[in-house]
Design a protein around this nucleic acid. Structure first.
Lengths: 193, 193, 193, 193
DNA sequence: AATGAATGAGATTTCATTCAT
DNA sequence: AATGAATGAAATCTCATTCAT
C-alpha cells in the first residue's frame, strides 16, 4: 500500500512546509516535488492529482490529530474533564505545529468547495468525539438533556476553530493553550453569572 | 462618487449572482460583465481590478448587514434581548439572501490572504457590536464580569459563523432562523443544566 | 482648414510633451487629450486616428525644421558653407528643443513600418536640400564629380542622425552644436590625412 | 546550458522568420511557437519572457555577425583594407540573410527603450572593431591623427546603418554589397575631389 | 519506480475609438 | 463643436499533468 511507502509521507510533509511558507496559491506541484526531493512526475505515482495531495494531507494529519485526542480523552472519567481535555489537545497540537496550524486554519480554506466537502468528511471523526462527550454529559446529569446535539457540536467546533484561526492570524503571538480554561468555561456555562 | 452610480451596484449584484452560481474560481470578469449587462471594459471604470470587485462587494453587503443589525438592536433595552436580536438578524439576513450566504460563507473564503485581511477589516464593525452587548450585559449584572471580552466575541462569531456555514453546506434545507433560540441559549447558558 | 485652428497645434504640442515624458508606448490618446485640455473625443475631430497625430506631429515639426534650414542656407554662397550651415542648423534645432529631439530620435522610431514610411516622405524635403548642396558643390568643382548622389545623401543623413541619436541617448550631457566642425570635416574630407 | 539545446536556436530562428514576415507587433508568442514546432509553454522553458526572445535573438545573431567581421579583418594587414572588409562584411551578411536584415533594421527598432539599451550593449562589440581600425589607421599615418574617434565611429556606424536601412526599405531591389566601394570612398575621402 | 521536458488551455486588463447627448 | 462613458478585441504567461526514456 502506497501510504506506507516513505515517499508518500515525504511528499505530504513537503506539502505542509511549502504551503505554510508560500501560501496555498503559490504552492505549485513542482515546488512540493522539489522540497520532497523527488521529480514532478513521481508525485503522480503516489497521488492522483494535486487535490489528492491536499486531501491526503488533511486525512493523514487530522487522523493523527483526532487519534491523539481520543487517546487523551479515554483517560478522563467524566464529560467535563473530557471536554476540557478535547479543547486542550485541540489547541496544544496546533500550537506545537505552527506550519500545520497555518495550513489547516488559513491556507487549506482557500481550496474549492469539492475539496472542502472532502475535508468535512475527515472532520466527522472529530465531531463524533464531541457527540460522545455531549451524550455522556447528559447521562451524567451534567449537561442539559434537551440540547440539540447536532447543533451544539457545530457550535463547539465553530468556537474552537475561530479561536485557533484568530491566534494564527495574529501570527501566534500569544499562548493558545492557556486559553483552554476560559474557552471551557464559556462552552460549559455560557455568558451568565 | 462612483459608488452612487447605478452601474456600480449593478456590477456588484451581478458578481454575487455569478459567484453563487459558478463558484469563486469559475467567476471570470467576462461572466460578471455579461450578467451585469455591460462590456468587460466597463467593469474597470468602476473597479480597479477583479479583487476590488470582491472587496467592494463584501464592504457594500456586509456594511448593510452590520447596519441593519445595529438598527434592530437599538430597539432592545437589555443585553440578552440584544444578543438574541443579533443572532436572529445575522441568521435572517443570510437566510433571506441565499446567494449572498453562499458567497460570504463559502466562495469568498477561497480568496487569498490579502483579500481576507480586507474582509477582516469589515468584520471589525460586527465584532464591535458584540463587544457593546457584552459590556452592557456585564453592567446589567447579567453576564459574568470576568469574561475575556476579546476571546468571547471570537467564540460568539465562530459559533454563529459555523452554524450558518453548515446550513449553507447542507444546501439550506432547513430553517436557519428557527435555530436562533437554541443558539442564544447555548451562548448564554452553555451546556450545563 | 483644421490645421489652422488653435486646438490642432495644441494637441500636437501636447503629444510631443506626453511622448517625451512617458515614452511612445505609454502615451495613450487620453493622456494627450488631458495634457491638451480637451476631451478624448475631441482629438478625433482634428485627427483621423492616433497614427494621424504622430504623422501630423512629424510633418508639422519637420516642416518647420526643414524650412529653417532652407532659410539659413540661402544666405550662404558656396556648397561648403551651406553644408556647414545644414549640419549646424540640424544640430541646433534639436539641441534647442529637447522634447522634440527625444520624440524624433527615440520614441517615434518605435512606430510601425507604415508610420515610418510616411515619416520618410517628410524626410524627402530634407534630402532634397542635401541633393542641392551636393550638386552645387560638384558644379563649383569642390566635390568629386562622380559621387553617387543618392547614396551620399543617405550617408550624410545617417551620419547626422546617428550623432544626434547618440547625444539624446547620452541624455544630452554634452554640447551637440559644437560637434558641427568635426562632423563637417568628416563629411568633407573623410578620414584621410 | 540552455543555449546549446537545439530548441533554443530553433525558437530564435522561428522568431526571425515570424517577425520578418509579420512585423514586430503582429508577432505573437503563439506564432513563434507554431513556426518553431513547439508548444507555447515550451518557449518559456528557454526564455524568461517575450522580450528575452528578442534580446537573445539580437545577441545570438549580432554576436555571429561581429565575430565573422573580426575573422575577416584579421586577414587584412592595413587599416584601409580592414575598413573595406568591415563594410563589405557588414553589407554581405545582411544581404545574405534578408529576414535578419528586416528584423534588425526595421522591426527590432520598434521595441521599447529598455530593449534598445540591451541592443546597444551588443553593438559595443561592433564599435570596438571600428575603434581598432581607426587607431591602426592613425598609427599607419593613413588617417588624420586628430580625428575624434568616439564621434567618428558613430558617424561610420550611422553611415553604414542608414545605407542598409534604405536598401531594406527599398525592399532590397538592388545590390547592397556592390555599394561597398563607394561607401568606403566616402568614409575615407569624404566629398572632396 | 523514477524522471523531467514538453504540453496547451485559459483569463485579466488595456486602450483606441465611437456616439448619444 | 465638444464631451466622456462605454465598448470589446486581443495576447502573455502559468502550471497541472503526461509520457517517452
Amino acid at each position: 500500500m502506497k501510504k506506507n511507502k516513505p515517499k508518500y509521507k515525504q511528499i505530504i510533509d513537503a506539502a505542509v512546509e511549502v504551503i505554510a511558507e508560500n501560501g496555498y496559491h503559490a504552492s505549485q506541484v513542482s515546488k512540493i516535488a522539489k522540497k520532497a526531493g523527488v521529480a514532478d512526475g513521481t508525485i503522480y505515482l503516489y497521488f492522483k492529482n494535486k487535490e489528492d495531495i491536499l486531501v491526503s494531507l488533511f486525512q493523514e494529519k487530522m487522523g493523527q490529530f483526532v487519534e491523539r485526542i481520543k487517546e487523551d480523552i479515554e483517560k478522563k472519567d467524566n464529560a467535563s474533564d473530557k471536554l476540557y481535555s478535547l479543547i486542550q489537545m485541540h489547541f496544544r497540537q496546533l500550537a506545537e505545529n505552527h506550519n500545520l496550524a497555518i495550513v489547516t486554519q488559513l491556507e487549506l480554506r482557500q481550496s474549492n468547495k469539492d475539496l472542502r466537502l472532502k475535508i468535512n468528511d475527515v472532520l466527522k471523526g472529530y465531531l463524533g468525539i464531541v457527540d460522545e462527550i455531549l451524550k455522556e454529559g447528559i447521562e451524567e446529569g451534567l449537561y442539559h438533556p434537551e440540547i440539540n446535539i447536532k447543533l451544539v457540536r457545530q457550535m463547539i467546533f465553530g468556537t474552537l476553530d475561530e479561536v485557533v484561526t484568530n491566534w494564527v492570524m495574529k501570527e501566534q503571538r500569544y499562548n493558545l493553550v492557556s486559553q483552554t480554561k476560559d474557552v471551557h468555561h464559556f462552552i460549559t456555562n455560557g455568558l451568565i453569572k
